[in-house]
């Protein structure tokens, strides 16, 4: 465990908590893509099946449980409790265009052709693109609430910190996982445009709105 990995995990946790709190406090999930949140719930479910097969550390197990529980709570708030505030008309990204190719790719390119390994690979590939429905929704409405941009910032920062963590681990531990690294690079690149807007607009106190 190095500092980049730890801050990456905490950044990921911060993002998840920010989103949950935003929905809970405002009693509304306006501007949030339920589809992205469904995909993240699917990502955590398929990745953390090893909770049943192996124990790594108390930290590892508790973080996994927290991530899974929070992602399901978020989906519940969006699709059940605050369904009336869900902006489904703008959440029109076709998730099958992500899930089907990612499913196929995880069968073709994986470390080991076994059910758990394929599901883990699927979750890695899916996570890298799971934010697309949310970014699509923002580009469609042309704006995002500031709190939503904080959520996206921490979510993007998490994978960027993981990239530094992987460089660190490659040099100091000889650890290298090509699938995770390539997916992580793709995932981080998807946030670059948003990072630019976040720094140039949100951090200067302006609302994130895109030119028409």
């Amino acid at each position: 465990m190095n500092i980049f990995r730890l801050t990456g995990d905490l950044s990921h946790l911060a993002a998840i908590i920010i989103l949950l709190l935003k929905i809970w406090k405002t009693r509304s999930c306006a501007g949030i893509s339920g589809k992205s949140q469904l995909l993240f719930a699917l990502v955590f479910t398929t990745r953390y099946l090893d909770l049943f097969t192996s124990f790594i550390s108390l930290y590892n197990t508790s973080m996994k449980l927290i991530y899974v529980a929070c992602s399901y709570a978020t989906v519940y708030l969006i699709y059940m409790k605050f369904k009336a505030t869900y902006d489904g008309n703008h959440d029109t990204f076709r998730v099958e265009f992500l899930v089907v190719p990612v499913g196929g790719l995880s069968f073709l390119v994986n470390h080991d052709f076994s059910p758990l390994e394929i599901l883990w690979t699927f979750s890695i590939y899916l996570e890298s693109v799971a934010i697309l429905p949310q970014l699509f929704m923002i580009s469609k409405t042309g704006e995002a609430e500031t709190i939503t941009t904080h959520y996206l910032f921490f979510l993007g920062l998490y994978r960027a910190l993981y990239l530094i963590n992987w460089i660190w681990r490659y040099y100091f531990e000889g650890f290298f996982d090509l699938i995770a690294v390539v997916a992580g690079v793709v995932q981080t690149i998807l946030y670059c445009d948003f990072f630019y807007l976040y720094v140039t607009k949100v951090l200067k106190g302006k609302k994130l709105s895109l030119p028409a």
């Binding site: 990995r5 790594i56 470390h111 531990e173 290298f176 995770a180």
Partner: peptide
Amino acid sequence: KIILKQKDEL
């Protein structure tokens, strides 16, 4: 050495 498939990350 290069180690593959280590699932200690989240």
